[in-house]
Design a protein around this nucleic acid. Sequence first.
DNA 1: TAGATTGTTAATCGATTAACAATC
DNA 2: TAGATTGTTAATCGATTAACAATC
Lengths: 208, 208
Amino acid sequence: MQKSKNISEATIKRLPRYYRYLKELEQQNIERVSSEKLALLLSITASKVRQDFCTFGAFGMQGYGYDVTNLRKEIGAILGLDKEYNVIIIGAGNIGKALYRYSGFSDEGFRIKAIFDIDVENNSFKNKANLLHIDELNNYLYEHPVDIAVICTQKEMVVDLCNKLKECGITSVWNFAPIDVVIPGMVIENINMSESLFLLSYRMNNNK
Amino acid sequence: MQKSKNISEATIKRLPRYYRYLKELEQQNIERVSSEKLALLLSITASKVRQDFCTFGAFGMQGYGYDVTNLRKEIGAILGLDKEYNVIIIGAGNIGKALYRYSGFSDEGFRIKAIFDIDVENNSFKNKANLLHIDELNNYLYEHPVDIAVICTQKEMVVDLCNKLKECGITSVWNFAPIDVVIPGMVIENINMSESLFLLSYRMNNNK
DNA sequence: TAGATTGTTAATCGATTAACAATC
DNA sequence: TAGATTGTTAATCGATTAACAATC
């Protein structure tokens, strides 16, 4: 149903939040929602909500609002959440292991298949079958389809790692190391925890 | 040195990145930097860099550029990174423990003092002295100064927890649970990993 | 039908970019 | 001095808000 007006960057960044709230409404068995109610939930304006949905085609009905399930599915499809993805984690340190153990992502189709590290023997990780040495990465990728690599290593090795991944045909990276990497043809999304903490620091010192 | 033209939201969000890059330049013993070089590093325009710095007072010199250390300190001060903060973590699950063990934050003055959970006995956490039962939170806060609480619990308990924290005088929260909480008088900064992953999904499906 | 609420246009606001005089 | 680069204004661009006709 997706029309191809080009969606603005600001709208795109709001899509995951819409998706999350719609999912919650769905779980509460709420069948329809107006732009006004949705806006209230997200602390934005109803006008923005309608404007956003309007850019990728109209899903609502005048006088009624939006069908929650339908809208959630449409937005999910735009985000690519109607598919499954094979995921590997590189770096079996604290964060890598935490992500591996966290089950929330597989609910949305992100299947974590293996976790790699430079040191396998001294790692406390339990599921030894899925903890592989980084030297096995090439072979692994040759034999298994992988869509996304999650990087949880030291920042020093991220650039080389990304280049290597690209050679192996993996172009999507979720990066937890505090470094911005730009490589043509790759899509790299960063989680920078320090920057978020610094923003908290700013806001607590500047009174909201 | 901070002038009080009010800093735009867009500028504020860039400050942590400036800070990070300036720190890196400092570590490489680079003493000065022009708006153009900095812009290149951050993949933004030189005009934006100068405009940003200009809003909180001019730190540069015509014909020379900016003194790296001085600029880093100024931005650090604006972000509140010239102070120290006592931090507690609530929720000793995967993410909570990973954050506790991660040393990177203490470099910037964020001192993690203790970690709380509803179940202390069955937790694999090593440093038993700093792992406390959530029921001890009130007493702990009564006896120890705490500036920031990091929430790593299930989303169901976040609202109550925040209210409780506020009662105890803690108004700054770094929240890792996938829920947006708005409480007047509190500053709550969210890390929403799912939303970042969904954005990656969108971008990989829409070809950058 | 009358009431509710969308889809969409036009007006406003804020952020980015371009340009250049000021000056180190 | 001449060259480099800032600080700042003005122009442009994009995002938000307001308003309302269309319509379920």
